[in-house]
Amino acid sequence: MVAAEKQSLRKRYKFEGMLGAFILMWLDFPLLYQGVVSHNSAALGAGFLIILVAGGIAYYFS
C-alpha cells in the first residue's frame, strides 16, 4: 500500500520533481562557484550539500 502510494507520488509529480531538481542545481551554482573560486569552506560545504539534495530529488523522480 505504502509502496503503491510512493509509486503514484513519483509518477504523478515526475515532471515537476525533475524540473525542481534541475532548477535547484542551477540555483546552487553561484553558491558552489563562490566556494570553489574563493576556497570558502562554508560556501563549499553548503553548496555541495544542496547539490547532493538536488541529486537525491533527481534520483527519486527520474
Binding site: L32, G35, V36, G45, F48, G56, A58, Y59, S62
Partner: peptide
C-alpha cells in the same frame, strides 16, 4: 532512466574519488 542511473554513477564516482584518489571537497565541487 538515464537521469536516475547518472545520479548513482555520480555519487559512486564521488566516493571512489574521495577514498582512493585524494578527492577533497574543493576538487569534487
Amino acid at each position: 532512466s538515464g537521469g536516475r542511473s547518472g545520479v548513482v554513477g555520480w555519487v559512486l564516482t564521488l566516493i571512489v574519488a574521495y577514498i582512493w584518489f585524494g578527492g577533497h571537497l574543493h576538487i569534487l565541487s
